[in-house]
Design a protein around this nucleic acid. Structure first.
Lengths: 239, 239
DNA sequence: ACAGCTCCTTGATCGAGATCAAGAAAGCCA
DNA sequence: TGGCTTTCTTGATCTCGATCAAGGAGCTGT
């Protein structure tokens, strides 16, 4: 047992431990700014699969950087059906859609054991004023999020399911590579249902497409573990 | 002829004339900040249909606020096919996808006679430091863009074309209403081809869907002029 | 280890929408 | 004004992926 349970998630340099600096805010902050950031960043208790980080309608307080694990975000159509809008991996930032109207517009739920850093937004804005480089960083992070979404739009615009599937896999692969993954293995934390929902196809079709790609020698499926064998061909399919 | 041709697009208060304050930056700036903004904002010569504002690979210098007219943005798939990623109306801001990597990632082309305000970004960032409210505004504008894209993702996720079409029309309608439109008429500046590309369907299908909606009494088509007769039903279809 | 889940695969059928084709309407420019 | 191009409509056919259905595989907790 920890003798100071209250500070269990604040003992270490929060900024260092959660990797915000390395993963989310690419510029180098100087010593003082770094220490200011440290005061700002809070760690949260780890979440288990199915735990919610925020829900539609929740008041917006913080951005969240994923330290490890993964999450999905989804909205509800008026018909009440779930519509997955994104998957979020280690090192990525969630919650930026809520800055404008001070309220979250989607649900964010953990897909596995996941830990996030909380970045209280008012404090972040204040610090932005004192540290110009931080301001630039935040702009960049948001810009990147915009591009990510537009990339997705580009993806969904394509007609064939094979292409969407290829792009989905490559996108995951590239994001993992950026985070320092060394092998060609994707450990999907989401169900086929989620993938299908995200890509706008039936989950049976996801299953069939993966099987088809396995037949062609492009990848190897072991449940949720996908080993990419022929990334070049995958890229060719993605177009 | 203008006696001062060089300053043709800078004579009036740029900020007032291009409507940046009202349309893009919702908070009220005080007198001094407003004047600083004025110095910042440049007007550009009007563009005619087909003129490009920027292209993929262009160095990022400025954000652009549309004063009047409309634009489309699109990327190219590796296969070389055009993929429309968005339509942009009066009062909306373009270029935010480029902040991160200092380079534009899509092409922006005028769909009709269009005029934009240029907001040089380095100056904007500097001014951000002096005017905290501006910083918040920029955060909000970017947040809104993120939400817009995620909304689109939600739209494309839906399976039926009828639904996508309905959502597309309603989305345009709402954006025009926000800008003060009083009637229920959409003057589409884009081709059926562009719409189909954007929604991920064949342009013939767009044509047929519109015809079908006209048969059901939901709207009335006169070439590119769409008069919405039954917005409630349209909303019901959109789900 | 077992029951009771959820999740995944595979097969069969059916329909929405892509594609091919042809002509009509509208915009454009000399 | 008339000819040219681009855009739009409408029809016919065919294909891809949705849907329905059934069984198998993998977790989870007891």
């Amino acid at each position: 047992m920890n003798t100071k349970p209250k500070s269990q998630y604040n003992e270490r340099s929060a900024c260092e431990s959660c990797g915000v600096r390395q993963l989310c805010l690419p510029v180098s902050l100087d010593g003082e700014a770094l220490s200011l950031m440290d005061d700002l960043v809070k760690r949260r208790a780890p979440m288990k699969k199915g735990d919610y980080l925020f829900r539609t309608g929740d008041k917006f307080k913080s951005l969240y950087a994923i330290q490890y694990g993964s999450m999905k975000s989804y909205g509800l159509t008026v018909g009440g059906k779930e519509q997955v809008t994104g998957f979020h991996l280690t090192g990525e930032v969630l919650g930026m859609d809520a800055i404008d109207e001070d309220e979250h517009h989607c649900n964010a739920v953990a897909l596995e054991k996941t830990e996030v850093c909380e970045l209280p937004f008012t404090a972040l804005e204040t610090l932005q004023n004192e540290v110009p480089s931080l301001q630039r960083d935040l702009n960049k992070i948001m810009s990147r999020e915009i591009r990510r979404d537009q990339h997705m739009l580009l993806m969904l615009g394509s007609t064939t399911v094979e292409q969407r599937m290829a792009r989905f896999l490559l996108n995951l692969y590239e994001r993992l590579q950026k985070r320092g993954a060394s092998d060609n293995t994707l450990n999907l934390s989401m169900t086929r249902q989620d993938i299908g929902n995200y890509l706008g196809v039936a989950f049976e079709t996801v299953s069939r497409q993966l099987a088809h790609m396995q037949d062609k020698g492009i990848l190897e499926i072991k449940n949720r573990n996908i080993h990419l064998l022929d990334i070049e061909t995958l890229g060719a399919i993605a177009g």
